[in-house]
Each structure stands twice: as C-alpha cells, then as structure tokens.
C-alpha cells in the first residue's frame, strides 16, 4: 500500500521529566476505562523515562496476527483497530513488543492508541503531545523527514527489528555529577 504519510513520534529522552502528563492527558481525552492504558510512562532507571504507546509500526504484528482483521493501516500510517470486529481473542496482546493493545476486561475487547485521529482532522495534536510540558514528545512524519541526529532506539526500548515502529529518539545526556562520598 502506498503510504502518503507515516505519522509517528519523536521522543527526546533528554527532555522527558517523567511527569506523566501525556499518560493522564490520554485518559482525559480518550476516556479509557481503568486498567486500559494506551500510553504509559515507564522508568528506564530511577530518573530517566520512556513514554510509550502504539508506535503505528511499519510492519505491525497486531495487523498480521489478528484473525478478525480488526487492525488496518491508514494511508497516513496510523494503525487503527475496529472495535466492532475485535472478538476478544487476545492474540494481538503478546505479539506487540510495546504492549500497545490493551485488553478491556469489561468489554472483552482490545483497544489501543489511534493517534487521536479525530483530533488530527481538527488540526489538533494528539492529546499526549499537546500535554507534554517540555516538548519531549512530538509528532513527526517519517516519510517526510527523519529528524537530524535522531536514532532508532534507546536503551530500555523494546525490540524494533520485528515491527519497525514509527518512532525516533534523542537519547539522554548525563551532566557532571558530584555525589557525597561515603
């Protein structure tokens, strides 16, 4: 399929302060039920973080494995899930390296980040990106331009070889540190 765009994320680990505004803004916007987290901030060490959602992969495993063909890839690169088609078989859950499909126990269906595509239509950024107070999380179109100096992965990020996630990174840089000696 010809992709007009490949929308994705640029995550600057150096700017992320782990404040979790992105995570809460996602719930605020999408009204996901308790336990369903389309975006999660996780520590990679005590003071550095990753913010991960569906990465709208180039080769999405969810798309490949789903018997109901509930997943589709739009021409802007967004991987969508059709709630009506999902029968709750849960096969997509273990194959995604990013734990993007989340299982809603009450509905007995999977759901995931759909890149706030309704907001995009109104020229608004996805809720998580809009919320980020340090611009650590940004939207990019990987078909257009790869941000200069960005890298494909950083320590702590799951395997990228299988699915080719649409995310690029700027790694964090450590400053000079003087700790009290024992």
């Amino acid at each position: 399929m010809l992709m007009l765009k490949q929308l994705g994320f640029l995550f600057n680990a150096d700017l992320c302060i782990g404040c979790r505004s992105c995570e809460a803004a996602c719930i605020n916007e999408n009204k996901t039920p308790a336990g369903v987290r389309w975006r999660r901030v996780t520590p990679t060490s005590e003071n550095s973080f990753l913010s991960i959602s569906c990465n709208h992969c180039d080769s999405p495993e969810c798309f490949r494995i789903c018997p109901q063909k509930a997943f589709s890839k739009q021409r802007d690169g967004i991987v969508m899930i059709d709630n009506g088609l999902c029968d709750g078989c849960m096969k997509c859950l273990p194959v995604c390296p990013f734990e993007a499909p989340q299982f809603d126990l009450r509905q007995r269906k999977a759901s995931k980040c759909i890149f706030c595509h309704e907001r995009l239509k109104q020229n608004l950024l996805p809720a998580c990106i809009e919320a980020c107070p340090t611009e650590a999380l940004q939207m990019i179109d990987l078909n257009k331009e790869i941000p200069e100096g960005s890298v494909r992965t950083i320590p702590g990020f799951p395997d990228i070889l299988l699915t080719k996630p649409s995310i690029r990174f700027y790694p964090s840089q450590a400053g000079k540190r003087y700790f009290i000696q024992d």
Binding site: D14, I17, G18, E46, N47, S48, S172, A174, G175, K176, R177, Y178, F179, I180
Partner: peptide, 16 residues
C-alpha cells in the same frame, strides 16, 4: 537528593 531535575542538570552537586 539526586532528583529527576538533578539528573537533567549540567552540574549536580549533592549536599547534606
């Protein structure tokens, strides 16, 4: 405390 803010600093100095 080596806080999240401290981890971002150019220079962090821990003090009693």
């Amino acid at each position: 405390i080596f806080t999240v803010t401290a981890a971002k600093a150019d220079l962090y100095i821990q003090i009693r």
